[in-house]
Design a protein around this nucleic acid. Structure first.
Lengths: 366, 366
DNA sequence: GTCGCTGCTGGTAGCGCTGTCAACGTTCCT
DNA sequence: AGGAACGTTGACAGCGCTACCAGCAGCGAC
């Protein structure tokens, strides 16, 4: 059980080539572009490599080829379950490919993001996945100049650096509020935490929907920069209630807050949805099993990650997508927590996504 | 916005050396072991590097030194919040160091783990973090033979491959059941999902505690190999209730299941803790804000990840820890869901951990 | 039969850095 | 004063792989 570091491993490409009776360069080609070899040599190299248990030295490959097989991923948080779903999709898509994932956490700071970006770019990644569309000018310039494909995820916006996959948080929030209106609710509060750009856009969507209905009032909005949590949901709701005791619904910027609001209602013996309706955002797994079950806006997080990585790998390998911007849409999942005040229920509100496939989320799948 | 890949970047170590008026090798030393240089040259190289904006080529470094600066991390799941806390600790500890984290997901398969291990080891990582103590014989042999420090995390067991940090799931489960006994509960059910080795050991702890009290009955145990979820908690509890309607407590192998049980109780109008007490495991953030608040066994996940990575980096750099096996302990956090039947409450049950520091978990911190 | 094309293969020459070891100047000891 | 010991520096020789380009065979067209 030697703990120290020593010399290099063993079998090199040259050994494989020798056993196969070809030149090293031919063996090299086998791993990069097998089609270029004659069938005879191809099988010879293949079996030689297998026999010797050859494993390529990635450092040597990177040095010689001026290129790494690393996909850099910049996400704002490792805790937020939203990102763990996305990540799972990314990892799943990268599995089996030659690319490895290099993850970095920006902690919701675009300055930190800029720093990490510089770090990544210096290593010449094969591709990059970045979160959102709100980079610093400097970051954006670096991305524009970058020598690799890039996918922006989580939302869609006007001018993609390269590729983009996500959905409109603004529209999703509007749809959620519209759903509450349909159910007969009027005095709809907003509860939000962290207030990162995407939450901010959900707030914007809420505000616009409320204004359209001439129902907007700044006092209905409670937000904080504090990171989100279930407990915080209860606290923010308490603030909201203190300010506006007669609200009849709450739109929560995420599901944790919604759960906190639900618990707080229970604590205060406020009937849900009788007195107050609750709508969350993301449709985490627990929303469907709460009592009452909680309405939420379903987003395709796993699919987003998986598609992003797949698009990126395709682009790296020269197969640029027909459609560089992909709107994955969202869907309001109506449940008990927002059921009708008056009886005139409608079908679920579905949003965006040209090809809004609405693949079932494998939440809690692994 | 060139998307393609091209030639290499620019300034090399040689350029820096030239500007600084030293040999390349001296410049190289500056980055690896500054103390070995005279102060004069050190500052010359430093300012030259800064002036040119030199960024070392890691591939060349790895090739020449037969060593990478990559820490491999093998975890069973990217979804489970338990691991996202650990991961956050690992990433936090690695930040600022020269090491980068390479993450892989074993999906709770030790065969997959073996495969990934082989892959990792082939790249000569600087260090390795692996989950648990249940590797295949082959994996274990590879780890023993590995040429780098290794930390096993999540639990502690008899013979560490190298270093180890975690706690006893067995003892933690026993403590949870003991707490229920203290509160006057007798007919305690067990609900578990996934049944990975750690959940299995929690079950073992539960069984032993029940047997010690002559209360064990196989019919009180409901488990499934299905991945855990809140919904599943409700379903398993339903099974348990159908089988043994007169249980007075449920020990859940994790908090998601506990939340599911709580919701199911609410659905069935079973009073908690009046009719049935609930205890979870991990003490996720929401446990403290549920209604009633839910008792759980707190585990130091963030600290575990952070300490593991810190120990590993220290070991890589030659500073082996005095104590290669670290028991981080656990703590039963008593809340309403398990409060006393008869009145004889006691202080919280604390477990293990020579230096059981009980650092507050920064859950939902970022 | 020669030319030119295509398809496959191999030789040469590094990629940018560090391990090893020798060489140098200085200090300190006897 | 001579030499050992130390601290600092540099020369050399690759690490294992691939870019580039040359070479060769096989084939069809003129």
């Amino acid at each position: 059980m030697g703990r120290k570091r020593t010399k290099s491993g063993k079998i090199r490409l040259a050994e494989v080539a020798e056993l196969a009776g070809v030149s090293p360069i031919t063996a090299s080609r086998f791993f990069r572009n097998p089609e270029a070899l004659s069938v005879a040599k191809r099988t010879r190299v293949e079996s030689a490599a297998k026999e010797l248990g050859y494993v390529p030295n990635l450092a040597a490959r990177a040095l010689a080829s001026h290129r790494t097989e690393v996909i850099g991923v910049l996400i704002p948080s490792l805790t937020n379950n939203v990102f763990s779903d996305v990540l799972r999709g990314i990892y799943d898509a990268s599995e089996g490919s030659r690319y490895s994932i290099q993850l970095s956490n920006t902690r919701y700071s675009i300055l930190q993001e800029e720093k990490l970006l510089r770090l990544f770019l210096a290593q010449k990644p094969a591709g990059l996945i970045v979160t959102g569309i709100d980079q610093t000018a400097e970051s954006r310039a670096m991305l524009q100049a970058a020598d690799c494909p890039i996918v922006q995820i989580m939302e869609i916006g006007p001018d993609p650096v390269d590729m983009m996959i996500g959905f409109s948080h603004y529209d999703a929030a509007r749809a959620a509020v519209a759903h509450l209106f349909e159910q007969g609710h009027r005095k709809v509060g907003f509860v939000g935490a962290r207030m990162d750009p995407r939450v901010q856009r959900r707030l914007d969507g809420y505000v616009s929907a409320m204004k359209d209905a001439a129902l907007f009032d700044q006092r209905l909005v409670v937000t904080t920069a504090t990171p989100t949590s279930v407990t915080l949901g209860g606290a923010l709701f308490t603030d909201l209630l203190a300010r506006e005791p007669d609200i009849d619904a709450v739109f929560c910027a995420n599901d944790d807050l919604a759960l906190g609001v639900l618990f707080e209602c229970r604590r205060r013996e406020i009937a849900v949805p009788g007195q107050i309706a609750i709508v969350g955002f993301n449709d985490l797994e627990f929303m469907a099993s709460a009592v009452p079950t909680l309405t939420s806006v379903r987003t395709n997080r796993y699919e987003m990650g998986k598609t992003a990585a797949t698009m990126l790998i395709d682009a790296i390998e020269g197969r640029r997508p027909e459609q560089p911007v992909l709107d994955l849409g969202f869907r309001v999942i109506e449940r008990q927590s927002s059921s009708a005040r008056r009886s005139d229920s409608r079908p679920a509100v579905s949003g965006a996504g040209a090809a809004n496939k609405m693949i079932a989320l494998p939440s809690g799948q692994d």
